[in-house]
Nucleic acid binder design. Structure first.
Lengths: 204, 204, 204, 204
DNA sequence: ACGTGCGGGACACCCCGTTAGT
DNA sequence: ACTAACGGGGTGTCCCGCACGT
């Protein structure tokens, strides 16, 4: 029944706040992000924010759970699920998202999940455990896909699926971190290709 | 009678402020770090800080130039300089620092340079250009060492030195980022080994 | 089907709110007390509260009228009504309630009526007039009882009933105030005994 | 040396803040008092307040230590110190201050020390211990004066000095509490006289 | 009769910078 | 070279009250 009554801008208030918060934290970090900016951008009041979330911390947690996690699954995990050729799927994903983020300019802001991980992991257990779970899920999905690829014959039998999974997630951090620090599209592309070349050597 | 007069604690004022600032920013980030905490930890007053540095921003720049840059060179670049076997040297460095940081517990705070890079690159050009220069220097040194290794016969001739350099720096970001996000020593070790195995495959 | 429908917890909503409000204001004062805490403790929503009471102020008035006033009459006035030996009755009441409040620990919170009187009298006429009426009633009842005691021969004929009444109510404020400020049961007992000794000197 | 540089209004900033805070807390209680009102009345900024006091709590403690305690000693303790006729001295003090507070209208605000004691004792140990110490000092001084009166022959030898001291402090709470709750000068005078009559019966 | 979502504003905190003085 | 007092302003928190809806 949801008394959300479709607000003026057409989105329910809670979703508007979450989206604004995601963007604000993406741009300025969690600690640097301002609730005033968030409510202003969302077109709502502080009262509405405080009604929906117990405070800045809970809002941050909700951003991870309700915005970042779905984004991760949509971008990286879903298409990996049933693929018999995981190496190609991963290469394609890297190449596609690198180009997308360069085209949109988003690459200079890095990866939203990694940004939060690097900023908040040592400071707040709630953030750390949520984000660590997502990275674990990511590694686990890659491992499963690689194992499937070995069975399907598209991946060499000697490779260690868990080791590859660790390296891929690690490389995603590093590639987007490099793009953010250098703001150099060419360097970001080179980073992606360095990884893709390594992956190619693991294919059957 | 230069202002380097040894203060009560035995260090000149400017150095004490720099060290406190480095630690504060390492722990709480640049935006989250407090000048009040810094001066309190350094045992000086705000007046002294503002006498030595024009403001928080300039202090941050000085931390990069005068603390982080030397640290980077000492830890990663110096021993790479004349080594005829770069692959081994890099492997050793990774293994040693991973163990050191696990032993000291510092791994949960990540890499100071990467922390600042991820937080400040999109927000402040002064930080970004300084840090990007350091990463460039790093890649350049690795590339030079690999080329030397090829000439010395310790590295296979097919490898692209620049590509390896990109990948190594990228992997350092990713490994320390993984350690920070997971707070799991085993996972950090596994990340390091995944990289070292790859490097091994590039040796002659 | 009046709104007195027994709620889940077995008490009608209005009574539950009043009790929660009484406790909240007793513990944190009227200004410091939070409506959110009250509704949470009562297990109702703010809508219910605002349906029953026009606002915080009216709720406070209702607490005085419907909780504190009955409490006062039950504890101090009822047993005084027909007593021929008022001095003993008052002494007994003081001694009993001092011990009860020490045993329950409530003495560190003082007297609910006096607390509200001291906090709100200069700030809000509605509170002041209600509470002042109760104190007047108290003095009036003590005066009547003392007069009855004089007629019954249990009180010396020289005493001024009104003066005694003033002093007794004043002393109740002072004793519970002393207990609250000192949190020292021995001092509270000594205060009560100092009063009882004085009263004894007024008996025939 | 005091760098207080005699501010525009002629008083050093810290003293102006303390005085404003005392008045604000006297009128609205500690919890109800607003730092904004205090700085506005003192003609200073938030920065100045925060520089002088660590927060609202510390400001409240300083008001007790640096405003209320001296006031207590000046009004009640000093002239009691060497008096050979303590009963008269105390009676005079009560009568004088009751009339003064009625004339100034301050009696409707009660006693500043008792106000804070009743509001904050159960909520904050720092307030409670400070104020309790002052009340203890008061009782101790009255006890000493009564003992001196017994030796000087102005007080009956049977009276218990400690018991009288307890009663006097208790009565001060009660008298000013009564004045505040009733806002009736006649009732406040009657309260004072009831106490003075009792004291008279203790004189030699 | 009562629940939900929300408005608007005040609050204490505390930050970074400056200025007058030593 | 260094200090202390102080200026403004922005932060997250959270409160009381209303307007719907059922």
């Amino acid at each position: 029944m949801q008394s959300t009554t479709a607000s003026p801008e057409g989105q329910p208030v809670r979703a508007r706040i979450l989206m604004s918060a995601f963007l604000e934290f993406y741009r300025n970090g969690f600690q640097g992000g301002s609730l005033n900016s968030i409510v202003a951008a969302a077109g709502v009041t502080k009262g509405a924010l405080f009604h929906q979330f117990a405070g800045k911390q809970e809002l941050g947690y909700a951003v991870v759970d309700e915005v970042i996690a779905p984004l991760l699954r949509q971008r990286w995990l879903d298409e990996l699920a049933g693929s018999p050729r995981p190496v190609e799927a991963i290469q394609n994903a890297f190449r596609r998202y690198i180009e997308e983020d360069i085209a949109s300019g988003a690459f200079v802001q890095g990866c939203p999940m990694n940004n939060l991980a690097q900023e908040m992991s040592p400071l707040d257990h709630g953030f750390r455990s949520r984000i660590d779970s997502l990275y674990s899920e990511w590694r686990s999905e890659v491992g499963r896909a690689v194992r499937a690829g070995i069975e399907a014959g598209s991946v060499r039998t000697e490779v260690d699926p868990d080791s590859i999974a660790v390296l891929i997630v690690l490389a995603q951090m590093g590639i987007w971190g490099t793009g953010k620090a250098s703001q150099d599209p060419a360097l970001m592309r080179a980073s992606g290709e360095a990884l893709c070349n390594y992956l190619q050597s693991q294919a059957a």
